[in-house]
Amino acid sequence: MSRPISRLGLLARLIGSVTILAIAVLAGIAIGETAIEPSIVLQTLANKLWTAGYGLDPIDEGIVWSYRLPRTLVAGACGAGLAICGLILQALLRNPLAEPYLLGISAGASTGAVLIAVIGVGGGLISLPVGAFAGAVVAFGLVAILARTSRGASASSQIILAGIAGSQLFNALTAYLITKSASAEQARGIMFWLLGNLSGVRWSSVWMAIPAVAIALLVCFWYRRALDAFTFGSDSAASLGIPVRQTRTVLIACAAFVTAIMVSIVGSIGFVGLVIPHAVRLLVGSRHTRLVPTSALVGALFLISADILSRILIKGQVLPIGVITALIGAPVFALLLIRGARVR
């Protein structure tokens, strides 16, 4: 059993985490197609936040404030949110392969977003995040029904297999909608977006992404003991007096909500919700009091780093961030699997 952490220790960890995150955000702003000195970044922030009055090039100031800062903040929020979603689903389903991408939630959110953007469902009355959330809920509902009616495997295996089928179905629906209804320019833009695209991120996206992650963190902290109990099974959770159905509904709705928000902003990004919780468990153990904040921090750092790489790997070209997360996430996940097999 781990010893309780003193208030001083908690404060030190909080300060350390904020410092690391601030350094990562500074790097995300300064590094890119055009390098910008950290001093210029800090002076721009001082001008915008406190009207410091530094004399700066308007182009540099615009790049920092209007483009790179919101992009970096959304990347961090998206990484934190997807890591939390993976953590929730892995605990509830007791399956290390559970994540929004694999369970069809991300694919369903993409289909819902494309229905709004291309087909115009709702006549302009339904926003992109609402469409994405509806698609995510429908996708997971379909996966849950399919898993419940299937036979011959454990519950967690059933839902993983159903999730794979659901992902393929909704990915096919998305491709069909794009092919049938989108113009060539729309199709090119949407396909790039579906691979994970932060190029169109502005401050309006920040005000969606950060509150969504804050809500997810609060929900996970509120249910942290329930998440600990679910890792031993729903029967164990029920024996401890936890309302299993209600708790599971709230947590899955939270995961679907966060996934939908992130997909509506940046498209589908895989491996974050799969790899980050695994890696963090090796660092801090399986108690969700530590897992939740550490997963959010590591997820944010991971996606900010991936965004930086997407801008500098190919000169004059920005890669979809989903390509970077797959190139990094797949080998890392393979190493985690090999390590787990050796430990057993």
Rank of each mutant, 00 (worst) to 15 (best):
L87P: 01
K180Y: 12
I20G: 08
L177Q: 03
V343M: 02
V266C: 15
R224W: 07
G53I: 12
A172M: 08
G131V: 13
G16R: 07
R290W: 11
H288V: 13
S264H: 10
L283Q: 01
E185S: 13
V292K: 01
Y176D: 07
K48W: 09
P58H: 09
I23C: 14
L146Q: 04
F257G: 06
P320S: 10
L10K: 09
S66K: 15
V130E: 13
H278I: 00
L227C: 04
Q158F: 05
G189V: 00
A296R: 09
S204K: 14
G152W: 09
S268P: 06
G104I: 04
L169T: 13
I88L: 08
L301G: 01
G122N: 14
D228R: 03
V64G: 07
I338Q: 01
G16I: 03
P70S: 15
F140I: 12
Q246L: 15
L195C: 04
A216I: 02
G28E: 03
G299P: 02
S183K: 07
L217W: 05
P243V: 02
V201I: 10
G16D: 01
K315L: 11
L309H: 03
T19P: 00
I276V: 12
P96I: 01
L169C: 09
L283C: 02
G340T: 08
L73W: 03
T51K: 15
T72C: 10
D60M: 12
A80M: 06
V272C: 02
V266G: 04
L251A: 08
N171V: 05
L161V: 10
Q43A: 13
T259V: 05
P293C: 07
L173R: 10
Q90M: 11
A52V: 10
Q43F: 04
R339Q: 07
L21S: 05
S310M: 06
E185W: 05
V74I: 12
I5F: 14
I23V: 15
A153M: 13
G9P: 11
T174Q: 07
R202P: 08
S110R: 08
V121G: 13
P211Y: 11
P277L: 06
L82D: 00
L336V: 02
G16W: 01
T179S: 08
T149W: 07
L173C: 11
V298P: 01
T44Y: 04
L26W: 10
A165S: 14
S204F: 12
L73K: 10
S156M: 06
F271W: 09
L161D: 08
R344V: 00
I210K: 06
A91W: 01
A134G: 06
A83W: 03
